[in-house]
C-alpha cells in the first residue's frame, strides 16, 4: 500500500471524487494556478479546468454563500477557507444559512456542501494563522464537523463528506499536512463521518483527542508502557455529532479519562466529551475527568517561547497521564 502525506491523501480523495463525479467543484482563494497556499489543490485546476477549480475573490462569505447556491443547483462544492482563523466572515452563511436549510424548509431543501479549512498551530503562524476554533461549529445543529488525523482517514472522510447530503465542516491540521504520513490505499473507499476510532488499545487510562493531538498523545502513551500503564487512545474524528457510544465504551473500560485538545478548554469539544462521561459513566470512574488544552488567552502568540507555552506537547500529556495513573 502506498505511503502518502496527510496533504496528498486529501488531494487524492478530492481528485478521485472529481474524476468520478462531475458535480464536484472547488471554490476558494488561490486554489487554482497556485494550488492553494498549502498545495492541497495543486494540479487540480490543470486537470479539471478553471470552472471546477475556481479562484474566488478574497471574500469568505462569498465563497460559502456561492457554494451554497451552487449546491442547491445540483453541484457538490468544496468551499475552501484559507485558514480557519478567517472563516468568521462566512459564519452567517454557514450557521444561519447552510446549517438551517433542511430544518427551516421542513426537509424541502438541503445543502450538500463541504467547507474545508486548515487549523491549528505550531507553525509560527501567530494569532491569526494558528487558531483551533472548531468548537464554534460543534455547537450548531445541522452541521457535521470532522477532523481526520491520519492520511487514511483524510482521504476516506473527504470522499464521504462530498457524498453527504448535508453541510460538512472538514478541518485539517496544517502541521499534519507534511508531518504526518501513512498508508493510503489507491482507489475508492470512505470513512464514516460519525464514528470515532480506537487508535491504541489499553485498559488503564482512556484518552480522547483529535487532529494533530492524536499523534502527540500516541507519543506520550508509549512513555508509560515501561511503567506498566496502557492507555487507550480514541481519535474522536467526528466532533459533531460525537460518537457517544465509543466515548462511553472506552471511558467505562478504563475508568480514568484524559481529554486532550489544542484549543483552549472553555466551552469546547473537551467540555462536551467530559459532560457525556459525567452523565453516562459516573459509576465507572476511578478518578476525576482530566482535561488538557490551550490556555485561556485569545490565540497562539508568535515568539517561539510563547508558542511553545501554548502548545500541548508530549511532555505535558505525559505529566497528566502520570498524575491520573497515580490517582
Amino acid at each position: 500500500m502506498p505511503t502518502k502525506t496527510y496533504l496528498e491523501a486529501i488531494r487524492d480523495g478530492i481528485r478521485e471524487e472529481m474524476q468520478r463525479d462531475e458535480r464536484v467543484m472547488i471554490l476558494g482563494e488561490d486554489v487554482g494556478a497556485k494550488g492553494g497556499v498549502f498545495g492541497v489543490t495543486d494540479g487540480l485546476q490543470k486537470e479539471f479546468g478553471e470552472w471546477r477549480v475556481l479562484d474566488s475573490p478574497l471574500a469568505e462569505s462569498c465563497i460559502v454563500g456561492v457554494a451554497i447556491g451552487a449546491a442547491l443547483n445540483g453541484m457538490r462544492p468544496i468551499a475552501e477557507i484559507q485558514f480557519q482563523d478567517f472563516i468568521l466572515p462566512a459564519v452567517d452563511q454557514i450557521v444561519s444559512e447552510a446549517a438551517k436549510f433542511r430544518y427551516r424548509s421542513n426537509n424541502d431543501w438541503n445543502v450538500p456542501m463541504v467547507v474545508r479549512a486548515p487549523f491549528g498551530g505550531g507553525v509560527h503562524g501567530a494569532l491569526y494563522h494558528s487558531q483551533s476554533i472548531e468548537a464554534i461549529f460543534c455547537h450548531i445543529p445541522g452541521l457535521r464537523v470532522v477532523v481526520p488525523s491520519t492520511p487514511y482517514d483524510a482521504k476516506g472522510m473527504i470522499v464521504a463528506a462530498l457524498r453527504d447530503p448535508d453541510p460538512v465542516m472538514y478541518f485539517e491540521h496544517k502541521r499534519a499536512y507534511r508531518a504526518v504520513k501513512g498508508e493510503v490505499p489507491d482507489g475508492e473507499y470512505t470513512v464514516p463521518l460519525d464514528r470515532a476510532a480506537v487508535v491504541r488499545e489499553g485498559a488503564d487510562i482512556a484518552v480522547f483527542t483529535y487532529g494533530m493531538m492524536v499523534h502527540t498523545v500516541l507519543n506520550a502513551a508509549e512513555r508509560l508502557v515501561p511503567d506498566g500503564f496502557e492507555c487507550e487512545v480514541v481519535d474522536l474524528r467526528a466532533l459533531r455529532p460525537l460518537d457517544h457510544d465509543a466515548i462511553v465504551a472506552s471511558a467505562r473500560k478504563c475508568g480514568k479519562v484524559l481529554i486532550v485538545q489544542e484549543a483552549n478548554l472553555a466551552v469546547s469539544v473537551s467540555s462536551e466529551v467530559a459532560a457525556i462521561i459525567a452523565q453516562d459513566c459516573f459509576e465507572h470512574l476511578d478518578a476525576p475527568v482530566m482535561r488538557l488544552g490551550g490556555p485561556e488567552i485569545p490565540a497562539m502568540p508568535f515568539s517561539p517561547p510563547l508558542e511553545q507555552f501554548y502548545l500541548v506537547t508530549p511532555d505535558k500529556v505525559e505529566t497528566s497521564l502520570r498524575e491520573l495513573a497515580a490517582y
Binding site: V66, I68, G69, G74, S96, E97, F101, R104, W109
Partner: peptide, 25 residues
C-alpha cells in the same frame, strides 16, 4: 424558490451560486 431565513442579504449569494452552476452546465 430558495428557502429564505431572516438574516438580510444572505440570499444574494445563493442566487449567484445557482447562476454559477447553471453557467457551468
Amino acid at each position: 424558490i430558495i428557502t429564505t431565513g431572516s438574516p438580510v442579504g444572505t440570499q444574494l449569494l445563493h442566487a449567484a451560486g445557482a447562476a454559477l452552476a447553471a453557467r457551468m452546465r
